[in-house]
Design a protein around this nucleic acid. Structure first.
Lengths: 287, 287
DNA sequence: TCCAATTATTGATAATTTCTATGATTATAA
DNA sequence: TTATAATCATAGAAATTATCAATAATTGGA
């Protein structure tokens, strides 16, 4: 039961007049008659009483009319909703992120601008984001660069800088900046070496011939902050993460140059069709 | 957005594999690829991510899938309901009737047999039934024959016979039959001359040289019965109608030959397509 | 780097829709 | 009742569209 036939049928059912309906449809009357005849054969029963000039719907015709109207409506609705995707009135974005703090602000403002778009952000290791992108479980990744892959495109966003976090009672709490030499002398609570943040600070220190000896190694930023609050030691965390904290018990001390930093970037599949939702988010992050 | 394309699309969306979907559909893979491409152009956006061997639905694809499923369901439903008409599980019958008593029993038993069929019976003058049939407001008519019309088919059902109705206290109440001579001598309450029942009895009497002089003329059978009950006079009504009354205050006295009678028949349009509902009712009345 | 699997492309063929011209039927008015 | 105009049906030709077979291009995996 082709859609075209339903359109033809509805036109006749509404006009109750083949010639007028054919005009409305922009086809000739013999074509319309023929096509309705085909539809009647397909349904297996007449849809119209044809008695002379006047025609009327049969019972099957009335039933078909109801359903045909709903079919037309469904298709209109589909077109409308697909149009809404282009208008960013709705949509869905699946993001893999090596630390949600990296894009917290962007998420907030993007959501404010496009409240109809579902944001689905999962905190993942870089490799997981990588796989998610290739396997089409993710639309975008926000990771530390470089991430080398033939099939991915990388878009640098900004430099994530690290900072020292200490208790507000700590002697360095009010310092304008701190050098790595000074840092190495402090009692520290850090990530385990497999974490990227730890690797960044370790690499920066190694460049100056320094080796950090943390008093404690923890796997989450939150727990490290707790240790700082209880004065176990200082910690080294992303500046952008520290900025999101509103904890009066801690102080954020920037590093003096050379500041330990790492590029943060957006990645996505190279041959991926970038729909409007994805494009809008990329534009949002890069402009 | 032709239905065929939606079928193709759903097959691909479910298999997520063009070759397998094409097999399932019984078409070749190039055809399927091409048709999906057409659909994508029509919608204005890709429906699948094609990245190498694996394909995935895009957001518009997901939206279309939902609606396409509903479309398919609507069409299935339409076919099902139209099938139910043929199976007499549902339907509608519009009958014009020159006196509902003529088919009361038939209506009851037909409804018992096919409870899903809506019965719409209106009591109409023969002319109104006639027009209703020609104008397709009615499917069937039950009228007194003959009803001459090029465009109508008449099917005799049975002879409607008239009978005398009198109060149970009336001297004739227990009579086995009554002649027209005797009738003419009684005080009578009858229809006005424009009513068919009156014409039948008048004609029958005229054949014997008799003329009826009713003491009262009324337009409904019910009111005539009331007059009988209150002993204003006897009345002459269809035997079948009198049979439906369960009034202990009246007595029904058949006429002796020649019994005033009139053929009752079924009429419908000659070139009308007789759907299953109508056929079933005709069969019900004539077998 | 090659092999197997998968989708895309191309040109030919088959099927289908549409049109024009005309026929048949029927309401409407002279 | 008989023309007349309006309407739907039919038939054959033309245009469009879907389909196929063969093959190219791409890609994921050994």
């Amino acid at each position: 039961m082709e859609h075209r036939l339903l359109d033809y049928f509805l036109a006749v059912a509404e006009e109750l007049h083949f010639t007028k309906a054919a005009d409305k449809l922009g086809i000739t009357q013999p074509t319309l008659s023929h096509q309705i005849r085909l539809l009647e054969h397909e349904v297996g029963t007449p849809l119209f009483h044809r008695s002379g000039k006047r025609i009327h719907l049969t019972q099957p015709g009335m039933i078909l009319m109801e359903h045909a109207r709903r079919v037309i409506h469904e298709l209109e609705q589909a077109r409308f909703e697909i149009g809404e995707l282009a208008g960013l009135k709705r949509g869905r974005l699946r993001i893999g992120c090596s630390g949600n703090h990296l894009i917290t602000q962007a998420l907030i403002s993007f959501h404010r601008q496009y409240p109809g778009i579902d944001l689905n952000v999962v905190e993942l290791a870089t490799d997981e984001t990588h796989e998610g992108l290739l396997g089409n479980q993710l639309d975008l990744g926000v990771v530390f660069l470089p991430l080398e892959d033939e099939q991915l495109v990388s878009l640098p966003l900004y430099d994530e800088e690290l900072a020292l976090i200490v208790s507000r009672h700590h002697p360095l709490a009010a310092a304008a900046s701190v050098t790595l030499d000074l840092l190495a002398a402090l009692p520290l609570v850090l990530f385990q070496p497999k974490f990227l943040v730890r690797q960044i600070i370790d690499t920066a220190c190694a460049a100056g011939g320094l080796i950090l000896k943390p008093v404690m190694e923890l796997s989450t930023m939150e727990s490290q902050i707790q240790m700082v609050v209880h004065n176990v030691g200082g910690t080294v965390l992303p500046f952008s993460y520290a900025g999101t904290l509103r904890n009066p018990d801690i102080a954020v001390v920037p590093f003096a140059e050379p500041i330990p930093r790492k590029k943060v970037g957006l990645v996505y599949r190279k041959n991926m069709y970038l729909d409007h939702t994805i494009q809008a988010f990329i534009a949002h992050l890069t402009h």
